[in-house]
Structure formats: C-alpha cells, structure tokens
Write a protein that binds this DNA or RNA. Structure first.
Length: 588
DNA sequence: GCCGTTTTCGGCCCGACTGTTTTCAGTCG
C-alpha cells in the first residue's frame, strides 16, 4: 500500500475541487466550504491519517460529515470520487485560469465552454489567434492578455515574498508615504504581514486621514510604482517595479479600528465577526457596526472587539480556528507578547559574521528595554570566516567584561553558536564551552543527510550537558531550502527530557521552530526561547516576528526562557541545574 | 457543505473599483 497522501496533497485536492465547482457554477457557499477546508487542512500540525485514527476528523474546523468522508476516501484510495468526476467534465487546467488577474469563475467558464480553452497555455494560443476576442469581445480579450502578461512577469514560483522581504518593503513604502502624503495621521501594515505569515502575497497597508483622497493620490505617485492597478476615493492598488502588488486603504481616524480589523483578516476571521454583527441585527464593515442608518465607528481594534464582548485575539491567531469562541468566552490563553521578552539569547557580533561590535549590540538591546543579551558568535568549524576558537573566545571575554563594567546593570552574556559536526560532536572542546555563560548549538551543514543521521546529530547535541539551547532546530530557510529531515517528535521529546531549550529563531528568513512544531514542543513540556539571531543592530528587532510565531502556536509566556529576569533565566539553564541529565557539567 | 448565546433548518460578509449590454456583473481583498 502506498503512503497515504500528505495534508498538503489533500488540501490541494479540496482546493481544486472548490475551483472546478465554482467554475461549474455550484453554490458559492459549498465552494466556500471546500476552499476553507483546503486552507485549514493545509496548515494542520498533525497528519490527517493520525487525526482520523483518533476519530477527530469531525472536530477540525470546517470539516463536517461530507468532507470527512472525502478525506477518508483520499487516505484510503489516494483519490476522491467527486473530484475525479468533475475533472472529466472540466479539465483541471481550467482551474489554473483563476490565477490570471481579472479571470474569475465566470470568465473561466466562458473561456472553457465557448472558446474551448483547457488551461493557461490554451488561453495564450486562443488570445493569439483571436478566438478570445471573437467570443468575449476585444475589450475583454485585451484585459485578459494584460492579466496573463502580469502573471508571467510575476516572478518565480508562486510569487510570494518571505516575511522579512515584505516587511522591509512595507516599511519603505510607509516611510515614503509619510513624507509624501498630506494629512496622513497614521499608517500601518496589515494583512498577512501583520499576521506574521511566513510568506506574503502582496503588501497591505492601512492609513488614517480626514481626507483620504490626497493620501491615495500620493500613494499612487510614489517612486517605485510601476503602474496603478486601481484607484478610488479610499482605495488604491499599485504594482511596484519589483513585481509586487501593494494595496492601500484610507479612512478617517474614527474608523481606524474597524479598517485595521477588516484588512488584517484573515477572511474567515472577518466573516465570523460579521456573522456576529448579523446576529445582532446589523452588519460590520470597515466603517464600523451599522444598524439601519445608524453607524457605530470603531477608532481602535479594542473598541471593536469589546463591542462584541470579546477579547482581542493576537493578529497571528486570527483565522476562525477557534479563537473567536475563546475570545467570546473570555478564555483566550495568555500568549507571549513582545513586552514579555527581557533579553535575547542568540545574536552575533563582528567577532564572527556580525556587522556591529559587542558594545553596539549591547547598547541597542538595552535601548530596546532588554536586561541582557547573549553574544553567540559562530564557532570555527562552520567555515564561516572568523569563527571563534578557544583562544579568541578568551579575548572576546575580556571585551565583554569591559562592556559589562560600563553598561551595568545591563548584562552581556558570553555564548557561542557552536557547530554540531557531521559526526554529532561539537566544534569546541568541553573546557572551552564550560567557561561560557551559555551554549547554543546548531546544525548548519550536512542538512541533506538522511533522516537517521541528521536526527542522531541533533539528539547528540540535545543530550550534551553543556548545550543549553538548540538553535533553529530544522535549519529551514523560508522560501528557500526545506531544512533537514529531522524526526521532530524525537527531538522534542528529548529536549523535554533533558531540559534543553528549543529556539524559535526569529530571523524572518528562518522562523524556526515553525508554529506547528512550537505548539508540539509546548505540549510535550519543552522550554522555548525566542531569539533574534541578529547579525546587525537592526536585526535585534527580529524578535517581533518570533513573537508572531509564538502567538500563532499559542505559546504561554512562562514557557519562554528569555521572559525571565537575568538571574532566574541563568538558573534555568541546563548547565546550572542540578537535575540535568547525563554527567555533571564541569565547574564554572 | 457547514453550523448553532435566537437556528438541527435556513441561513451563509461586505464594500470598492472597473468597465460599460449606462445599472450592474464580475473580480478582488
């Protein structure tokens, strides 16, 4: 028997089913149900086969009896009968037309039925020989051709940006908008960027201004705008020269809260909120709560949620995945907030591949309100120029001592990001590691070794009595390499057993642990850290992304080591605990 | 197809913008 299909594959089947049914003209509500199931299934932390074993398929949000039966069909046979049937009627390629801007279900249906287009390649040919224009008219054909061109130039892969790239782009746009837009009172990033999704499709900005018009005009005229895709009194969508779309919504400040909620989404969260409004006899829009002629605007998100008797769900948790019910009952669990973090346990300086001095990093961390910062430069074996050996660590200690004398009570801790070698050993002798305040271990090389080998290396590091933290446990790069094929349940269990901290590396290019792994680690009893992995002063602010991951994983603050004050944090390190597993560490 | 602090049936989010069969359907977020 073949391996059962992955959650991603099952999600893709439901997504395709939704697209094809929509093109066929089925009930929009049925389509929405399948589409929502596809999105939910694609992000579940546990394989659907395992969920089914537990008899819990029906408890997944958006999965009822009919969808559960289709999931079982897929798990058992690798196929879904309904999908195979509709594919005989509408080729799967027709669903691909929906990816073309300005082609929705209605145009896709006409293109398939009346022009005989079976996919994007067909469409290109039908445009070229005039068949599209003959059926839909010249105007429609021109519009579709432009959409197709935009699709082709839309960049590699799925065109989504890693979170960090999108964040930098949004920051840049907002800065230029502040300089250029008259009457702009506030501007902020919303959408998937604010929800700290790992990748971002396009950049969504919201702004407040008593007169939205001039702000919209200024946005459309910003340098870097390749073309304006749509523009009205309160909204504008532009395509930037680098091939990324950016959307702006502008309303007067009294609507800020409802606008921010509306654009932050996600769409299913918004729909739930609007259902709550309907239940009260009104409706919720980006302007506020409307009942008949009367509008109650919300200047803040807090006011909007309070109106419905809810707590405010952190943006990364807004997905209608149970957070609405919890917030209504006042039972949202406390999750890590940015202000809970009192220090950072993983950062680099010019001693290895960082760009700032120890002192510069320390001053910046102190200015962020932190009480401590661990400088964890690379060890020599990574092959990174300038990795530290035992001798240079001694020299670095002298510099750190000087900085601490100057900046007390702020404290710089001397650590290392020590390389886990191909044989599972560490890159520095135990005597050198023992002299440090803490040790962060990392697997950087040999990530493509097989599952057994990489897992054994990581387990060896976790068991080492002088390893306090396992950095970026999977080694994945967002939008880049997938990371090692680690047996994550085994790593998590061993980290819990030995008291080794698992890191949420907050570098937006890493976000590692991912949210689902972080959730499993919390469930297993692990202690986590949220660290910037900064290589420059500006990188210290990465922590907000790590906090986003922790929030989506619903990590409580008490499970994050660096929420503790310095002394309590140090006392919890494996090396400083009497109950640590294995041989006693050497005396400090 | 899903779902329940009015519901196990009868609902299902809402507005902005575009192009133009010039009153609204289609698409999008």
């Amino acid at each position: 028997m073949a391996m059962p299909p992955t959650n991603a594959a099952i999600a893709a089947s439901f997504g395709l089913l939704a697209d094809l049914l929509e093109i066929r003209g089925e009930s929009a509500f049925k389509v929405r149900a399948y589409r929502r199931a596809a999105e939910t299934l694609g992000t579940l932390p546990e394989p659907l086969a395992a969920i089914r074993e537990r008899g819990a398929l029906g408890r997944v949000a958006g999965v009822g009896a009919a969808i559960a039966a289709k999931i079982e069909d897929l798990l058992d046979t690798g196929q879904m009968r309904q999908l195979e049937e509709i594919k005989r009627e509408i080729p799967a390629g027709v669903a691909g037309l929906l990816a073309v801007p300005d082609i929705g279900p209605k145009r896709a249906r006409r293109l398939h039925h009346e022009v005989g287009v079976g996919g994007v390649d067909d469409l290109r040919a039908a445009l070229a020989d005039g068949r599209v224009a003959a059926v839909l008219g010249a105007g429609e054909a021109k519009r579709i051709a432009e959409g197709l061109a935009a699709l082709r130039s839309g960049g590699a892969d799925d065109g989504r940006l890693p979170l960090g790239v999108a964040d930098a782009l949004a920051g840049d746009l907002m800065e230029r908008l502040r300089a250029a837009a008259p009457g702009l009172e506030r501007v902020a990033a919303a959408g998937s960027l604010r929800r700290c999704q790992e990748t971002v499709g396009d950049v969504d900005l919201v702004a407040a201004a008593e007169e939205p018009g001039p702000v919209v005009e200024a946005f459309a005229a910003l340098p870097g705008v390749a073309r304006v895709e749509l523009k009205g009194p309160t909204r504008c969508r532009v395509m930037l020269e680098r091939g990324v779309a950016a959307d702006l919504w502008v309303l007067p400040a009294r609507h800020w809260g409802s606008l921010l909620v509306h654009v932050t989404g996600d769409q299913y969260h918004d729909i739930r909120l609007r259902s709550l409004a309907i239940a009260r006899g009104g409706r919720l829009t980006e302007y506020g709560y409307a009942e008949g002629e009367r509008l109650t605007p919300f200047a803040t998100e807090e006011e909007l949620y309070a109106f419905f008797g809810m707590q405010v769900p952190p943006p990364p948790t807004r997905a209608d995945a149970g957070e609405v019910e919890l917030a209504l009952r006042g039972e949202l669990p406390a999750v890590l907030a940015r202000d809970d973090l009192r220090g950072d346990l993983h950062a680099h300086s010019g001693w290895s591949d960082g760009t700032a001095s120890v002192r510069e990093m320390a001053v910046a961390a102190r200015d962020w309100g932190h009480a401590y910062l661990a400088i964890t430069d690379h060890s020599r074996g990574l092959g990174i120029a300038n990795g530290l050996d035992a001798e240079r660590l001694r020299a670095q200690r002298a510099e750190i001592d000087r900085v601490n004398a100057e900046l007390a009570p702020f404290r710089v801790l001397q650590g290392i990001e020590v390389e886990v070698r191909a044989d599972g050993g560490l890159d520095l002798p135990d005597e050198a590691l023992a002299r440090l305040d803490l040790v962060v271990a990392a697997v950087h090389s040999g990530l493509r070794q097989g599952r057994e080998k990489v897992t054994a290396r990581a387990l060896a590091a976790i068991r080492h009595p002088l390893v306090d933290v396992l950095a970026h446990p999977t080694g994945r790069i967002v939008g880049g390499r997938p990371g090692g094929d680690f047996d994550m349940p085994a790593l998590i269990a061993e980290a819990a057993r030995t008291g080794t901290v698992l890191e949420i590396d907050a570098d937006p290019g890493r976000l590692d642990l991912r949210a689902d792994h972080a959730r499993e680690a919390v469930a297993a009893g692990c202690l986590l850290s949220v660290d910037s992995d900064a290589h420059a002063v500006a990188g210290l602010d990465n922590l907000r992304f790590g906090v986003g991951v922790a929030q989506r994983a619903r990590v409580p603050p008490e499970r994050v080591l660096n929420t503790l004050p310095l002394d309590a944090m140090l006392a919890r390190l494996k090396r400083n605990r009497g109950d640590a597993d294995g041989p006693e560490g050497p005396p400090a």
